[in-house]
Amino acid sequence: MSKLSDNVRNRGKQFATRLATNISQEVASDHNPYLVKQVRYHGYDHLDLMDNCELSDIIFLLFRGELPNSEQRELFRRLAVALINPGIRHPATQASITAGVGKTIPTNVLPVALSIYGGEFDGAANVEKAMKQFQDLDKKSIDEVAQKILDGELEVPVGFGSLYGDVDHYAYRLLEKMIEISKGSNVLVCAKQLSDLLKPMNIGIIKTGICAATLLELGFLPKQGCGLMQLLAAPGLLAHGVEYADKPLASMFFETDDNYEIDYSEDDGDERPSFVRENVA
């Protein structure tokens, strides 16, 4: 019909010829320009960091560009512990166990689990969105926002919801532990207030919301949120998968035929699109 698009011309777009970073500074070795003799992160010598910092301090440094002060250090440490293990029942952990017991090569177990932990249900998918919503909430009256949500005029923010049909009370306890040491924290206190006010809807704070509120409180950017939640959950996800790596295949579920129901009745009822074949025979 048209040959206009066949005429392909380069736009001459200029691409980078060097990478640039604010994070890592390497000093080349004297004899091989591909090797390093010194490494600094945001100005701090790597070996100095090894001597003087905890792991969570350096994660904070890599993303925020500064080492945490004592309050930030404790808040971030608590968040890392709060999220460290989604628990054996979590679908991402089950994926990790399935990979482990299935003898998946060890280097693939964590990526498998983290991919599933990137989902929306009790996972990391919505941390960025939740952080942006908390930024907006910070400027509003929580009472008014809650009332509008209860009245159906506003959607429930993504950091809030239910887990298996109910308020996630354990998530609420984690939030309280965060608030204990966050002096004058606006975002975490707002999150708790909203969680309390939304109880009549049988919803409350979820772990995604705790992660989002805490990261925002600590000055992280929304775009850093999803990956950080994945990163913090990685130890537990991996530990459970590796726990099953030496176990026999039968250690993981394989439901009996009686418990595997095939039901085609939930057809979407759409009209038959034109790409569909009438019958297979």
Binding site: L19, T21, N22, E26, V27, A28, P33, G43, N52, C53
Partner: peptide, 18 residues
């Protein structure tokens, strides 16, 4: 190579009293 990277961050500094 190490020098193929342009570093734009903080200058060298010491970890002090965390």
């Amino acid at each position: 190579q190490v020098d193929d990277i342009e570093y734009r961050g903080e200058s060298e500094r010491k970890v002090i009293g965390l």
